[in-house]
Write a protein that binds this DNA or RNA. Structure first.
Lengths: 265, 265
DNA sequence: CGGGCCATTGAAGTATGTCAAAGTTTGTGG
DNA sequence: CCACAAACTTTGACATACTTCAATGGCCCG
């Protein structure tokens, strides 16, 4: 069942773990012990450490990485705030948004465990986006200056950081491609397959999953009205491609969805 | 006249040069001399060197940077090709596209002199996009490996490279914001202001400029039909906001365009 | 158990895509 | 240098998919 490849290739994930997406990561080290949070992290193969070898990974453990719990709806950083940290999502789901001129917000992306947020803030020293937790989440704050220092000494780490930024680039224009898709069916189908691929990358079922974001968020992300998202999901369900129960999605015929992504383009 | 700030803030450009966008850069050094092409470049303040000091810039001059002429319509790199070089646009205009499943192409971005292309190829070692010259252009090929080596020694250079990647990120989701805009008027107005800002960044008139891309390219970029782009431009012209003569654009009332960007959002 | 938020569904108006044709410009070759 | 051809742009008419406004219904949390 490899129906993602055309939509969301992703990086070949080295053996995904089987831990739970929500509720697995608990603070193991006492505050004084200062153990690297990566040691107990279930998504480290997607995150900064990647597949770096023992030696290259050591400088990461020297970084003073802070763990931070973020409740549903709380912000991790706000648009315009000074940039100091990169944030790695350890558990939960995060959306990034930009404020529009009339106060509304435009969703620019969704982020799952293992993703690193905030690279864009490094362009001019302040975050151009706001990051909001969609559920009770936990993030690791990585001090940017320290990371850049470490990169000077360790070549593989330097390459890894560059790769992560590039991955963010690739992800962003995959999103662009989604939004640019003509017709709501292409967009919604693309979104579902993207979510499915993301789940798969993290070792979860690509077939059945729970959306953490509202229809309004999806609509904003895809550039359509929330009602259209809802209607399109219903239409897919009526045709037997998926089942929808509120935010629980099951993909019954992913290849049909893929056909819809391809069609209008 | 600072009507861009809300749409395309850009980086504060240090004193833009007054050279011509097309036709200025001629190969000065003979092949054997191997002088850094940056020395004679009119947009180096936007490019890799940025505002790095003399000392930090030196390692850049040691890179074996090749200049390459690209005729209108020719490709700089193709989707799927192996990634070895970053390409700095020295003169001319470049579009990046992704192939869609039925053979059509989707424009992901436009690139003007000073922009650096190809960072995204670094994610998995091959370019996910195709870069095509929109006019007779010239690019500098920067060997990625060499650049990364140089970054190990020189801290400011390391920060500069990270900043450039971040800038690319910011630009990309500015584009996303454009495409996501409801209604063709917001999108086309946003596009015009974006172009205007880009021109301004390079020391040209923000008020009057020549588009290098076709209506089809613009439509693809904005996610609308090319006819809609044309109609919308005509509508703006009819209302006195702009004048359009084929690809020559003059912004008569940029603030009106800005209002249109703001309105529907 | 109740209130608020979120999702679903309906109906109507409109903007945009599509198809088609004519008018311009650019580029090429004689 | 001119003329023709190809490519691009503009404009029109029509069909349709989407947005908007509105009301109902279902979850979840307090």
């Amino acid at each position: 069942m490899d129906f993602h490849t055309n939509v969301e290739g992703g990086v070949p994930a080295s053996a995904p773990s089987l831990a739970n997406l929500h509720g697995a990561a608990l603070r193991t080290a006492s505050p004084g012990t200062a153990q690297s949070p990566c040691a107990t992290c279930t998504v480290r193969h997607l995150c900064l450490p990647g597949d770096l070898d023992e030696k290259s990974r050591r400088p990461l453990e020297a970084l003073t990485i802070g763990r931070r719990r973020v409740r549903k709806g709380q912000k991790i950083f706000r648009e315009g705030e000074g940039f100091q940290f990169l944030y790695a999502v350890r558990m939960g789901t995060v959306k990034t948004t930009v404020a529009l001129h009339d106060g509304h917000e435009q969703v620019t992306n969704f982020h799952l465990p293992g993703d690193i947020l905030g690279f864009d803030g490094l362009a001019d020293g302040s975050h151009p986006t706001t990051a909001t937790a969609l559920d009770n989440a936990e993030v690791c704050a990585i001090p940017y200056i320290q990371l850049m220092e470490a990169c000077g000494d360790v070549k593989p780490l330097r390459y890894r950081v560059a790769q992560l930024m590039a991955l963010q680039l690739v992800r962003d224009f995959r999103s662009l491609k989604l939004v640019a898709g003509r017709g709501s069916e292409q967009r919604v189908a693309g979104f579902l397959l993207q979510m499915s691929g993301w789940m798969k990358d993290r070792g979860y079922s690509a077939r059945e999953f729970q959306l953490r974001m509202s229809r309004a968020d999806i609509g904003s992300y895809l550039g359509t009205a929330l009602e259209t998202v809802s209607r399109t999901l219903s239409a897919f369900a009526r045709r037997g491609f998926i089942t929808v129960r509120h935010r629980r999605i099951e993909l019954l015929q992913p290849q049909e969805l893929l056909m819809h992504v391809d069609k209008g383009e």
